[in-house]
Nucleic acid binder design. Structure first.
Length: 203
DNA sequence: CAACGTGATTCCTTACATCA
DNA sequence: CTGATGTAAGGAATCACGTT
């Protein structure tokens, strides 16, 4: 786990959702579900009886250096931690905590960004799907019109000269004659039967 | 007073070292 | 070599304080 790059860390955590905990023993699952112990409020001054120091806001200079260091590298090796701590006049533990929080918040920000990017992509895709479905509908209408026209032409020819062969009156049909007509305008039955699906997306 | 930002804590897992 | 145990580090969840 310690060797994973920061960028990978973000996404890998998603892949393992449910995997690790699914493999826990029953007692481990129980431990996982156990409510966390509540911390006592520490309204008192620094260094109270529990040894908890009063929360300190870091100075702007300290923040800048920490941010700069975080940009360089999200992971914090102990050597770098000690150096940073001494440069900043902080406890190494504070530096470690700061990095931990920073990584967590960086990750959640990344997740939010990724979510909104995917959302935009999804919306674009839905619009495009809608456009394509409309196009299919229009093409089907055109096809229908063409079939009607062909039908009327065919009827006109056959009523004019009932005894004559089609190859004479309708040379454009070539060697297929009337039997070929269905194949020329063949449209698979189940190819498209839910042209208005997209309407339901917004219902 | 509520919402928010953030330092700190707790619990848990994982990696690694040591030992019998 | 192998399994048990201890330890350090880090992630996730949460708390709680200070600020807006």
């Amino acid at each position: 786990m310690n060797q994973i790059d920061d960028d990978q860390m973000v996404l890998i955590s998603q892949y393992y959702t449910g995997v690790v905990y699914d493999q826990l023993l029953p007692e481990q699952v129980e431990a996982k579900a156990r409510p966390r112990r509540r911390r006592k409020k520490n309204k008192g001054e620094a260094g109270s009886c529990s040894g908890v120091m009063r929360k300190r806001k870091l100075s702007e200079q300290q923040m800048n250096l920490l941010e700069q260091s975080f940009e360089d590298e999200h992971k914090l090796e102990s050597e770098r931690k000690d150096k940073l701590a001494s440069d900043l006049g902080l406890d190494p533990r504070q530096v470690a905590v700061w990095f931990q929080n920073r990584r967590a918040r960086w990750k959640s920000k990344k997740m939010e960004e990724e979510y909104s990017k995917l959302k935009t992509q999804h919306e674009t895709t839905v619009v495009e799907k809608c456009r394509l479905e409309n196009e299919v509908l229009k093409l089907k209408e055109q096809l229908c019109e063409a079939e009607k026209e062909l039908q009327s032409l065919t009827e006109r020819f056959s009523s004019k000269s009932p005894s004559s062969s089609l190859s004479m009156d309708a040379p454009f049909l070539g060697e297929f004659g009337m039997e070929g007509l269905e194949n020329v305008f063949y449209v698979p039955e189940n190819n498209y039967n839910n042209g208005y699906d997209w309407v339901n997306l917004y219902a």
